[in-house]
Design a binder for these strands. Structure first.
Lengths: 262, 262
DNA sequence: TGGCAGTGTTAGATTTTCTTCACACCCCGC
DNA sequence: GCGGGGTGTGAAGAAAATCTAACACTGCCA
């Protein structure tokens, strides 16, 4: 069964080498320029050899996309992990900056994920790509809402939802901290859009006039985002009297968090 | 000079026809698939004829990009104009929804603007594209900050700026309502990112699991955005005592606004 | 009215891509 | 040690792209 003899290992190594070469090529010429021939050239091989590892171009692209999603999620996770005790910055901001940093460090791969879909390439609908996305989204979900109860989240101050929307959000599958009330789900989506939008604009060069200051603006936006969302979550439930309060309850104790791995 | 004889008119018509065909093709096969041959095929002409109108493919792309930026800005402007008196929805939300609606109505052209930059195509740095962007940005700027004085905006409640950032934002050219204090500029960028991010995620299919409800979530996010930003702007200046106030001062009178055209 | 510029066609040179087929080499397991 | 499958090369088919060159028709303008 596990016939991982030299042959098997060599194959794995070769596959890895091909993926590396493909990533390298993508990093230099963009995702749209990805072609099997180019990858083969970069490896000093002929095109046909690659067909022994990937049945066609789409399969290679799929592998690259999957890996990119995973790497991005890993980067966010790593950011949160390393700065676990640095309480100067809220962990959500740290996670967001991890997202941004990865995107800036790998702009072409980020394009591969969130740019124009590749010509004649349709991502496999329910593949492992969604898995990495869920992983990442549960990180943000946790850092955004940890310390609040479901009741508090359900009472978040948002415009009134239509009942179809409420129903729809209710029945979505939950991947993060168990159940997430509709208002919290909506706020999470809003936050993701905010975060993502700033990164996309920067990586795609639409805010280049801001130069280096983008990092600072991004941090400001994320701090405000966190503050604004927390401000919408009631501190106490029973008494509707909620005085405006700058600092929402932050869980100081590093409580055990749900496992995030696959 | 104005030798707009039949020849001139025919040329203009033909050029327009080419652009239309190109847009049509882009709308069906995406920006990446744009080729002179394809456009020519759509027109029932041969490729070479197009070279009499556009020196090369990039020139055609540039024209399309420019037009798309203009159309987007027009759509936002139109949205604001039509719903000028419908006070049910803040005008900023109306503008944002105009942005979103255009993007959804023309996803491929939106990709052309904000997706992966096209292969081997570099947008002309300081062309008319930036002009349309400025037009649009000044709309959002107005709807976001109209009714506040520069002093109020300068005192907006944001994390402390580093002096380089402050200096940088100070010296940026101002296109909208004259001078915009650094905190307001930063908030505007943040808002643009928020708006854009939600639209990008939706148009590129990353939030398809929300289905039709995205419109409602988007509206909620934009309402909150406006509220949150206004909450950061002090109502009165001299007395630091600022009670929390749900509704910031809104200019009821349709005051004359600065010209937004070229 | 005569020539020139604009507009279109046909031909062709050149490049790049994906993919399949047939053949050669060599490691691995039996 | 022997055979088969994994791994590579070479050749070739089929399609598409950009762009140049040479040539014909036609309306415009002097």
């Amino acid at each position: 069964m596990a016939q991982s003899s030299l042959r098997r290992r060599r194959r794995a190594a070769a596959t890895q080498e091909i993926l590396d070469a493909a990533e390298h090529h993508i990093s230099e010429h963009g995702p749209a320029a990805l072609s099997l021939r180019a990858v083969a050239r970069g490896l000093g091989m002929t095109v046909q050899a690659l067909y022994h590892y990937f049945p066609n171009r789409d399969a290679l692209v799929t592998a690259l996309v999957t890996k990119a999603y995973d790497d991005l999620a890993d980067a966010v996770q790593a950011a949160v992990d390393t700065a676990a005790d640095d309480s100067a910055l809220p962990r959500l901001v740290v996670a967001a900056e991890g997202y941004r940093r990865w995107a800036i460090a790998h702009p072409e791969r980020f394009q591969l994920l969130y740019g124009t879909p590749l010509r004649d390439y349709a991502a496999p609908a329910e593949g492992p790509t969604t898995q990495a996305t869920r992983r990442m989204s549960s990180i943000f979900e946790r850092e955004l809402f940890d310390g609040f109860t479901a009741e508090q989240l359900a009472a978040a101050d948002t415009p009134v939802f239509s009942s179809p929307l409420r129903a729809h959000l209710e029945q979505l599958p939950h991947y993060g901290l168990g159940y997430l009330p509709p208002p919290a789900t909506a706020l999470l989506m809003s936050a993701w859009g905010h975060l993502h939008g700033l990164v996309v604009l920067e990586v795609f060069g639409h805010t280049s006039f801001l130069g280096d200051r983008q990092a600072e603006i991004f941090r400001m936006a994320m701090r405000n985002l966190l503050e604004d969302i927390h401000r919408r979550i009631p501190v106490h439930l029973s008494p509707p009297h909620a005085a405006d309060q700058t600092e929402p309850p932050r869980t100081a104790a590093p409580e055990p968090r749900p496992r995030t791995g696959p």
